[in-house]
């Protein structure tokens, strides 16, 4: 198998092709991982919400409270103001889902589902829907339309500015999806490429291949740790940007 084929095989989604009668169920590696992540999140959420008597249960409950307090004081209120408190549950879920999805790729046999543009696109559409919902909720239909025209714009510029503002909102949603997708995909491609260096050089000379294994593995460990950081960072950035964009719509006057 060619190097590019190996990378593509690892990165791309694989359909297991499950048929129920004549109905084709698109059960793929990514959907299976997504279901696993969702189940783990659900279980974690239930355990966090319970206040049992064991030390583990109390620790988990405290961690849950700290997490929610961090999301409220570190992301939602700075980005959206006190109005954002009512959407706190959405942001808590969003952050944990993206984080667990990013981290899933570091577990053997699991896939990084955020390296699939459909997944990040779906998350970005949810954030876009929240932006529109908040605009309509806090300003009404006419008020929301007026937020697309900055104050002080001459009337003859309105037909030009209005579409520009609408497209820039769409671009923001697209950027949310592309940023997360590109970061996670490129990270995994780099990890795989570093590993394949050993086999490429080993194919030319076995001694050189053995010699290249040590630096390649060193780089591999470094990049894996970097991927761990990126997983947290990208979940944080996606959530923070969503809160900022929603906050801009809420406080547009």
């Amino acid at each position: 198998m060619e190097v590019s084929e190996t990378i593509a095989h690892h990165i791309l989604d694989h359909d297991f092709g499950v048929m129920v009668g004549t109905l084709h169920l698109p059960i793929t590696a990514h959907t299976v991982t997504m279901v696993c992540v969702s189940l783990v999140l659900l279980l974690t959420g239930i355990l966090m919400a319970r206040r049992g008597k064991s030390i583990f249960s109390r620790l988990l409950h405290t961690a849950g409270e700290e997490y929610v307090a961090f999301m409220r004081d570190g992301i939602v209120i700075p980005g959206m103001g006190v109005e954002g408190k009512q959407f706190l549950s959405y942001f808590c879920t969003l952050f944990l889902f993206i984080l667990f999805s990013n981290l899933a790729g570091l577990i053997p046999q699991m896939k990084t589902i955020t390296s699939n543009i459909s997944v990040t696109g779906g998350l970005a559409v949810c954030s876009g829907a929240l932006i529109v919902y908040c605009g309509l909720k806090f300003h009404g239909l006419w008020g929301f339309i007026k937020t697309f025209v900055p104050g002080g714009t001459p009337w003859w510029l309105v037909p030009l500015i209005f579409p520009l503002e609408v497209i820039s909102l769409l671009i923001r949603v697209c950027v949310l999806a592309i940023r997360l997708f590109a970061n996670m995909l490129s990270g995994h491609m780099v990890l795989l490429s570093l590993l394949l260096i050993i086999f490429i050089i080993g194919g030319m000379s076995k001694i050189a291949g053995t010699g290249s294994a040590i630096p390649a593995m060193g780089l591999e460990i470094f990049m894996t740790l970097l991927e761990l950081l990126v997983a947290f960072l990208q979940a944080y950035v996606f959530t923070l940007l969503t809160s900022i964009y929603v906050g801009l719509v809420i406080h547009s006057h």
Partner: peptide, 20 residues
């Protein structure tokens, strides 16, 4: 800190606008 995060997205927003 909020502005720093927004600044990091500006380059990508510019690129997406040109690509679109």
């Amino acid at each position: 800190a909020k502005d720093h995060v927004v600044i990091t997205t500006l380059g990508l927003e510019f690129a997406v606008a040109v690509a679109l």
